[in-house]
Design a binder for these strands. Structure first.
Length: 742
RNA sequence: UGAGGCGUCGUCUAACGGCAGGACCGCGGACUUUGGAUCCGCCGAUGAAGGUUCGAAUCCUUCCGCCUCAACCA
């Protein structure tokens, strides 16, 4: 199983709180629930790593579950592919389940719903049901079968299962509320008839549960505690809870939480679109190295470790976001940097004759695989009179800043001697056909000071002793950052996403690479010996990713610099009438519950304005979604609380502490105030003592404050206020603090 | 139009009433037989307006913007 990520996020916060509250008996069980109707992609990787990571972090369990409730689209091929992908990415799961394993039990639950009047068989056609559901602006209406007797529904449902009806003849529906503001709760479908062959249950069933019914039950049956899905299921949560509440009790009771799905620039992450790319032969298959599928990325040479690093870097939150693909590329490079030996390969060869080297002499140069760590071993690389260098490493008329070969220029050949270009050999039509160069036999190898003497270092191979190899140069599949924004995403395809370097030559050692080997081709990028097409002695290399290329950037740099803060100007002094905020009184009057609460509080303490202020600014926030009348604090108690503040017995700060306590625990304000020691400290020396304690505890901050970091006054003041339980007057604390800080 | 969710450097993400932090990108420098790597530095943000508070990214209000939901898919 994957290692536990270190960072925290809103989900770890939730789990921490659950654990602290003793929920689920301290268990943490997550699940990754793919539907076996396609292959997994980078977006799933985020989800897999999240669920596996959470389980690892809390020493819990993670289930792999195939959500196979739709027989028409699901296939065994996919369940096998998905298992291989998950295992590759995250390791072994704690348990493997199939939704279809629970069909019988789900069916039993459905009968129970019918018997309890919470579900009924609707015999209307699809169109009628849709019409009756209403829409956002129009409540739904009851259909003619809504009040069908339970016995009749039960009989019909059993006959549905028995196969007495054709597809679409009737459905099982939950009886919830046809006028529910959440349209998902307007008597949602639970079961539909599908006379189709299921990849696991065969023809045993002809009715299949819908997602919203099946998913919560699968979670509950499996003992899942935290059911984590993506944001678009937020509205479904209400139905998820309805199903579980109707069929409980459950221990543990699963809870659904939603996070933002992954979106990345220059790619698409939708099963439908990926399937289209495959079906229309825009790519070679699901595992085409340009595909963002796990299979594709694996074949590209990307490792699970790189993906895990990426997942950790992007974090988990609820913001809709599009991650810069540069972030993925960074993780890939960082991972490869540490794991790949460096080899020599020339993709587009330009012949070089070393005129100063004897024609028949070949010297085997020992070059370390890891230039920075020669101790990790090396190999022999043949050097001779006829060499090949990269065509793009020579320029007839070098631009400014050129650090490669050009007429008269001297460079270092990686791992070998210095080389000077003496003469350009022209072909029949005047093109550069080769170079005649001289080497400097005295140039030491290695030579730490070389950088000062030559303009750059080039990769090279021996012309005769190097070997041909197919090298596939992959680039981003899409040329536009947001292919989805285009009206047809296919139009954003990058025509240059694959180039094959057919004339490429590699040093002998690389020609012996085995499928699955990884190398950095010096100065060019990271390459992976294709596991499918490589043959012994004839590897096919996939470029996983290029090196960062600081030389290629000037073209980009020519773009205009980022606009300096094009901030929308603040609307000049908003007119008082326009966005006028309602007064406290108006707000209270507008809400009957607030008005009643305020009135009752006033009976205990007649100061309308301060009661209103505490009510609106503090109590409301503390109450959150709870209604005021369900709080353990009565309106009268609240009034007595405000009276304590107004009487000066509570400072505002202590008041907030006390109010928070009263809202959770209840109790009599004055009594709790005394129990908590919150009553205002008027005694100057007691406050001074608190200030001194705070200063002693914050020695480093005090030193920094004295050194000039005046912004730390807030921190120190806060510390002093806490020492005094908030019971000290803030002005007095400030005064004493300033006095001591000089 | 109803319901739900989300707004923090260009991008992703922290800060749970008290120092707006980190990462990627970008820019600059050091170092380097990879225009790579490494190291150092710089740049740069709380959607807006009010309110509460000694103190607000955080609590309250209003406004603005974005996303999701009206499949017998998941």
């Amino acid at each position: 199983m994957a290692d536990a990520p270190r960072g925290s996020n809103f989900l770890t916060d939730i789990i921490d709180a659950d654990l602290a509250a003793g929920r689920n008996g301290g268990r943490v069980v997550t699940r990754f629930p793919p539907e076996p109707n396609g292959h997994l992609h980078l977006g799933h990787a985020k989800s897999i790593l999240l669920n596996f990571g959470l389980a690892a972090r809390y020493r819990g369990r993670v289930h792999l579950r195939f959500d196979d409730t739709n027989p028409e689209t699901e296939e065994t091929e996919y369940v096998e592919g998905i298992q291989a992908d998950v295992r590759w990415l995250a390791g072994e799961w704690s348990a493997l389940h199939y939704a279809s394993d629970w069909f019988e039990r789900m069916y039993g639950c459905a009968e129970r719903l019918i018997r309890e009047g919470k579900a009924y068989v609707d015999s209307q056609p699809q169109e009628a049901i849709r019409e009756q559901r209403g829409d956002f602006g129009r409540p739904g209406v009851a259909g003619p079968f809504r009040d069908r007797p339970a016995a009749e529904s039960l009989d019909l449902f059993r006959r549905m299962r028995a196969g007495e009806f054709p597809d679409g003849a009737c459905v099982l529906r939950a009886r919830i509320d046809m006028a529910h503001p959440n349209v998902l709760l307007r008597d949602p479908l639970l079961y539909r008839i599908r006379h189709a062959h299921h990849h696991r249950t065969g023809d045993a069933w002809c009715i299949y549960p819908m997602y919203d019914y099946a998913h919560p039950l699968e979670d509950a049956f499996e003992g899942v505690t935290h059911s984590i899905c993506t944001l678009e299921f937020e509205s479904n949560r209400e139905l998820y809870d309805w199903v579980l509440d109707a069929l409980g009790p459950w221990e543990p009771r699963p809870r659904q939480h939603e996070f933002a799905r992954l979106a990345v620039g220059y790619t698409v992450l939708s099963k439908r679109k990926l399937l289209q790319l495959v079906n229309e032969r825009r790519v070679a298959g699901w595992d085409d190295p340009r595909m963002p599928t796990l299979a594709g990325m694996r074949r590209r040479g990307i490792t699970p470790e790189a993906l895990r690093d990426f997942a950790e870097r992007i974090g988990v939150a609820k913001n809709n976001s599009v991650v810069d693909i540069g972030k993925l590329e960074f993780s890939i490079r960082a991972d490869l940097e540490g794991r790949c030996p460096r080899g020599l390969a020339v993709l587009d060869p330009l012949p070089v004759t070393v005129t100063t080297w004897p024609a028949d002499r070949v010297e085997e140069i020992e070059i370390p695989w890891w230039p920075a760590e020669p101790g990790r071993g090396g190999r022999k690389v043949p050097f001779g009179r006829e060499l090949l260098v990269e065509r793009e490493d020579f320029a007839l008329e070098p631009p400014e800043g050129w650090r490669r070969l050009a007429p008269g220029r001297e460079v270092r050949l990686a791992g070998a001697w210095r080389l000077r270009c003496d003469e350009v050999v022209r072909g029949p039509s005047g093109e550069v056909a080769g170079l005649r160069c001289s080497h400097d036999p005295s140039s030491p190898r290695p030579d730490p000071g070389d950088r000062q003497r030559v303009s750059g270092t080039l990769h090279w191979v021996h012309a005769g002793r190097s070997r041909p190899a197919e090298v596939r140069l992959y680039d981003r599949l899409f040329a536009a950052e947001q292919p989805d924004a285009a009206e047809d995403f296919l139009s954003a395809l990058n025509p240059a996403s694959l180039a094959v370097a057919r004339g490429a030559r590699v040093e002998p050692a690389l020609a012996e690479a085995r499928a699955g080997d990884r190398f950095q081709f010096l100065r060019q990028g990271w390459f992976f010996a294709d596991p499918v097409d490589s043959r012994p002695g004839a590897p096919v290399f996939n470029r996983t990713i290029t090196l960062k290329d600081a030389w290629a950037r000037p073209a980009v740099r020519a773009e205009p610099p980022r606009p300096a803060k094009a901030r929308a100007p603040a609307p000049a002094a908003a007119p008082p009438g326009g966005g006028r905020t309602r007064s406290d009184d108006e707000r209270i009057a507008a809400d009957p519950v607030l008005a009643a609460f305020h009135r009752q509080a006033m009976a205990a303490h007649g100061h309308a304005a301060s009661v209103a202020r505490w009510l609106l600014n503090d109590l409301l926030g503390l109450a959150r979604e709870r209604s005021l009348d369900t709080l353990p604090l009565s309106a009268a108690g609240f009034g007595r609380f405000v009276a304590l503040v107004d009487a000066g017995r509570l400072t505002p700060a202590a008041g907030k502490t006390l109010l928070a306590d009263l809202v959770t625990r209840g109790g009599e304000p004055e009594e709790r105030m005394r129990e908590l020691g919150l009553e205002r400290v008027g005694d100057r020396s007691a406050v001074a003592a608190a200030v001194d304690r705070a200063l002693a505890a914050q020695a480093p901050e005090v030193a920094r404050y004295r050194a000039g970091e005046k912004k730390l006054l807030g921190v120190l003041l806060g510390a002093a206020m806490r020492q005094a339980q908030g019971a000290a007057d803030a002005a007095l604390v400030r005064e004493l603090l300033l006095e001591r800080l000089g």
